[in-house]
Design a protein around this nucleic acid. Structure first.
Lengths: 243, 243
DNA sequence: GCTGGCAATTGACCTCGATCAAGGAATCCC
DNA sequence: GGGATTCCTTGATCGAGGTCAATTGCCAGC
C-alpha cells in the first residue's frame, strides 16, 4: 500500500547473468519482468542504465501517499537511466507487458562509450529520442484538454507500436498495452474521466477497441484531434512500412 | 503574431566569434540576449548545444495558434540541446533575464567529449541534472494542485537562484526572474489563477514579494506546501552555503 | 504634478474534469 | 457451469481553475 521505504517488493528477476547485449559484449544483467511487476529505482549505490529489449515498461512515481503517476512510457530499444528519476519520488519501472531488459552499471558502460564511437552514437540517439518524447508528453499534459491528451496518447502508441492496417490505407490498428488506470495516470486524468472520453470517441466512430486492440478506421481524423500528431510522428525517422 | 514559419525574429546576437568556453578551447559562438529576446530553435541544418553562462533562459513552445507554454527553465551552467525540443512545436529560447550563452555544433562537440574525460563527465552531469529537474516538473504539473505547483516552483527558484537570508536562519530571499504570465505558462495555470494563489500566500504571510524579489520568512512552512520540496532540494548536491 | 501604457489583481460566472457511488463486462479459478 | 476478482463504464453532484471584464498599481516620459 503506501510504503515509501518498502523492502524490494519486486523480485530482481530470474535471469541474473552476464549476457551479450545489443551486439556488444558489455557486462550487464538480464532481467525478465512479468506483467505489472515492479522494479524499484535508485541511484544508489551506483547509477544504472536499462536497455529495454522487448515489451513496454512504465516509469512511475509514487510520492508519499499520493496517487501513482506514470511519468513516461518506454518502448523497445529505449534506454533509461536511474538518474533521470530523482530520489525521493518513489520511482519504479513497471512492466505494462511482459518485458525483457538489460541492466548495466553506468560506470561500466562509460568506457565502452568512449572506445566505441558507433555505440556512443546509438546511446546518444536513444537519449535524444526519449528526451524529445518527454518534451512532447509535457506539452500534452500541461497544455491540452482531456480529449486532446487522449488523442496525443493514441498517436504516440500507434507511432511506436502500431502497424498499418492492410485493408484501407488510411486506417491503423495497434495494441494498447496499458490498463485504463495506467493511461489515466499517464495523461493526468482520472480513470472515470478517461473512460468517458474513450466512450465519446467510440460512439463517434473514431476508434474501436476490443480486447486491448484499438482500430482506427480513419487515421487522419484522429490525428486532427491531436495537436501534437505531427510532432509525434516526426519522432520516428522511418515509418517502418514493411507491410 | 501567429507565425510558425516566421523569419528569424530574434537577431542572432551581437557576439559571433569563436571564444574559449568553460575552461576549454572549443570553437563556439557567443550569444548575448536581452531580456525577452527570443532565439528560435531548430535541429536543422545541424544539432546545436547551448551552454548557459549567466542569466535565466526559458524553453518555450508555441504550438500553432495555441497559447505559449514554458517547458523548462534554464539556470546558469545548464546545457541545452536542440534535439530536446522536437521540431514542429515552435520551440525557442527566451531570455527571462539578460543572458549570455555559448552555442556549439553538436558534431564539433562530440570529439571533445571523447578525448576529454573530465569534460565528458561535466556534460553528463549537466544532462543528468536537467533531466531530473524535468522529471520533477512533469510530476508537479501533472499531479499537483495550483497552490502546490506554485510552492514547487518557489522551492525550485530558491534552490537554484536563492541565497539564505543573513538575518534569520529559517528565512530565504530570492529574485523571481519571470513575469506572472511566464510563471503561469510554466505551471500550466492561467495568469489570473496564479495571481489569486499568490495573493493567498501573501495574505497568509508565507511569502512577500516586492519588485521581483521574494522573501520567505519561514522557509519550512513554504516547503511543507510543496510535495516536491525534498526532491528539488536534493538536486543540488552542495547547498553553496558560503554566506 | 498629470497621463499613457502595461502588469498585476480582483470579481462574477461558467466549464471541465474530479469525486462518489452504482452497475456491467470480461477473465480467472475451482 | 458458478462465483469471485478485476477492470471498465456510466450517472449525479461538486469544486478547482478557466474565462472575461473591470480595477488597481506601477513607472516612464513630459
Amino acid at each position: 500500500m503506501s510504503d515509501r521505504s518498502s523492502p524490494q517488493s519486486a523480485k530482481p528477476g530470474p535471469a541474473v547473468a552476464a549476457a551479450p547485449s545489443s551486439g556488444r559484449e558489455i557486462p550487464g544483467v538480464a532481467l525478465t519482468l512479468r506483467r505489472h511487476q515492479r522494479l524499484l529505482l535508485s541511484s544508489r549505490p551506483v547509477d544504472h542504465v536499462f536497455h529495454l529489449l522487448s515489451g513496454v515498461v512504465l516509469v512511475e512515481a509514487r510520492l508519499h501517499d499520493r496517487p501513482r503517476q506514470v511519468l513516461e512510457i518506454l518502448y523497445p530499444d529505449d534506454v533509461f537511466r536511474t538518474h533521470d528519476a530523482p530520489e525521493l519520488i518513489g520511482a519504479a519501472l513497471v512492466a505494462a507487458t511482459p518485458a525483457e531488459l538489460q541492466r548495466f552499471r553506468l560506470d561500466v558502460l562509460e568506457p565502452f562509450e568512449r572506445s566505441n564511437i558507433e555505440f556512443a552514437h546509438r546511446m546518444a540517439a536513444a537519449d535524444a529520442l526519449r528526451s524529445a518524447r518527454r518534451t512532447l508528453h509535457l506539452a500534452s499534459v500541461s497544455g491540452h484538454s482531456g480529449e486532446e491528451r487522449l488523442a496525443d496518447f493514441l498517436v504516440e502508441i500507434a507511432t511506436f507500436l502500431g502497424v498499418p492496417v492492410p485493408g484501407r490505407a488510411s486506417g491503423r490498428a495497434f495494441d494498447v498495452p496499458m490498463t485504463r488506470e495506467e493511461i489515466a495516470d499517464y495523461l493526468a486524468l482520472n480513470p472515470d474521466t478517461l473512460s468517458r472520453i474513450f466512450s465519446r470517441l467510440k460512439s463517434s466512430g473514431l476508434i474501436a477497441v476490443s480486447r486491448g486492440r484499438a482500430t482506427v478506421p480513419d487515421w487522419p481524423a484522429l490525428a486532427r484531434l491531436s495537436p501534437l500528431a505531427g510532432a509525434i510522428a516526426a519522432l520516428r525517422p522511418q515509418q517502418t512500412l514493411v507491410a
